[in-house]
Lab assay of single mutants.
Amino acid sequence: DEEIEKWIETLLKRNISLRVNGKDLEIGSEEFKEWVEKFIKEV
């Protein structure tokens, strides 16, 4: 979905790490990609 890709790009540009389930996810890491894929499937 384009919306999500733009959102991810924005996050990448800002180099933010997300806190997911109490863990810091490094943007661009494998864990982050897995989380994004799960997130996309749920939406």
Rank of each mutant, 00 (worst) to 15 (best):
D1A: 13
D1Y: 14
D1T: 13
D1W: 14
D1F: 14
E2F: 15
E2Y: 13
E2C: 10
E2L: 13
E2T: 12
E3Q: 11
E3R: 12
E3G: 08
E3A: 12
E3F: 14
E3N: 08
E3T: 11
I4Y: 09
I4A: 03
I4C: 15
I4R: 03
I4P: 04
E5K: 15
E5N: 13
E5P: 10
E5A: 10
E5V: 13
E5L: 15
E5R: 14
K6Y: 09
K6I: 10
K6H: 11
K6E: 07
K6P: 02
W7M: 06
W7D: 00
W7L: 07
I8M: 05
E9D: 09
E9Y: 02
E9Q: 03
T10M: 07
T10G: 12
T10I: 15
L11D: 01
L11S: 00
L11N: 01
L11A: 04
L12V: 13
K13E: 14
K13I: 09
K13N: 13
R14D: 14
R14H: 15
R14N: 15
N15Y: 08
N15E: 09
N15P: 06
N15S: 11
I16N: 03
I16L: 00
S17N: 10
S17T: 10
S17E: 09
S17L: 12
S17G: 08
S17D: 06
L18Q: 01
L18S: 01
L18E: 01
L18T: 01
R19N: 07
R19F: 00
R19K: 11
R19E: 07
V20E: 04
V20C: 15
V20D: 02
V20W: 02
V20F: 03
V20K: 03
N21E: 07
N21W: 01
N21F: 06
G22D: 05
G22S: 02
K23H: 08
K23P: 02
K23I: 12
K23Y: 10
K23F: 10
K23L: 08
D24I: 13
D24Q: 11
D24W: 11
D24N: 11
D24V: 15
D24A: 10
L25N: 02
E26G: 09
E26K: 12
E26S: 08
E26P: 08
I27M: 05
I27F: 12
I27L: 12
I27R: 02
I27D: 02
I27N: 04
I27A: 07
G28N: 06
G28C: 09
G28M: 10
G28Q: 03
S29T: 09
S29E: 02
S29N: 03
S29K: 04
E30Q: 14
E30L: 12
E31G: 08
E31T: 04
E31M: 10
E31S: 08
F32N: 00
F32G: 02
F32R: 01
K33G: 02
K33T: 05
K33R: 14
K33L: 14
E34D: 12
E34T: 10
E34R: 12
W35M: 04
W35F: 09
W35G: 00
V36W: 11
V36M: 10
E37K: 13
K38N: 10
K38T: 08
K38D: 09
K38R: 12
F39S: 02
F39C: 09
F39I: 13
I40S: 02
I40T: 04
I40H: 04
I40L: 14
K41F: 04
K41I: 06
K41S: 06
E42N: 10
V43F: 14
V43R: 07
V43M: 14
V43I: 14
V43C: 15
V43E: 05
